[in-house]
Design a binder for these strands. Structure first.
Lengths: 111, 111
DNA sequence: ACAATAGTGAAGTAGCTACTTCAGTATCGA
DNA sequence: TCGATACTGAAGTAGCTACTTCACTATTGT
């Protein structure tokens, strides 16, 4: 699984832009062409293609060109890698809080 | 729960930098002072404080100053919000793949 | 009181990001 | 074959990001 810091940089960077998150959101409901991704966004097609390149470089999206249409789809593994990184830190912290709670409960018992 | 796009921008932006992820990682193992966060990083204390401000603005980290020491800790809710956003999109896509699989299995049965 | 510690704040700067426009190429449909 | 469609790529630009250094303030230990 991709734990390469540079890859995580690219993924979180990619998700840091609302237009790109909107694109990912759209793609989570199924594959789409570049124009379909562009349609709800208030920017030039060129700008959308540039966002798409960022998403593709991050590994979050894979694209495939058939004829003149470029079809984009979400890449599950990358999405999981980003989620996993956050999840690990959250769990570490939650476990720590639990231990702290246990400790406080125990010291209270000892009075 | 914080689903505000601007807040998500700030969170993912914050996580897009390896130094800041390292700080979050350190904090997931327990609270720390600014100098403790800075210690493993190859940059000036000033730079670390600037990163810390980014993390605090994103809501991922909360700090509290006592005397001359600023103690930093992770903010569980923000971490959950970022994780949740990714999780929702991943699940949407996975459910879609499942439905697609079911559909293919069914049409195969009909031969 | 004084030195060391812990952090703050401002200014400067190199490099990056998110666009724009415009000019182009390939493919498709009638 | 010809016009519409679906991108593609380059160049330019305003604004942001990740630092740096340096000068500073507040707190603590001796």
């Amino acid at each position: 699984m991709l734990h390469d810091p540079a890859q995580l940089d690219l993924m979180f960077q990619a998700l840091a832009d609302p237009a790109r998150r909107q694109m990912v959101d759209r793609l989570s409901r199924g594959p789409a062409s570049v124009s379909q991704l562009a349609e709800p966004l208030a920017m030039s097609l060129s700008a959308v293609v540039q966002h798409l390149n960022v998403l593709e470089a991050s590994g979050l999206v894979r694209t495939e060109k058939l004829g003149r249409v470029r079809t984009c789809r979400i890449e599950l593994q990358a999405l999981r890698a980003a989620e996993h990184w956050i999840n690990e830190r959250r769990l570490a912290w939650e476990r720590r809080l639990d231990r702290l709670g246990d400790f406080l409960a125990e010291t209270k018992d000892e009075t």
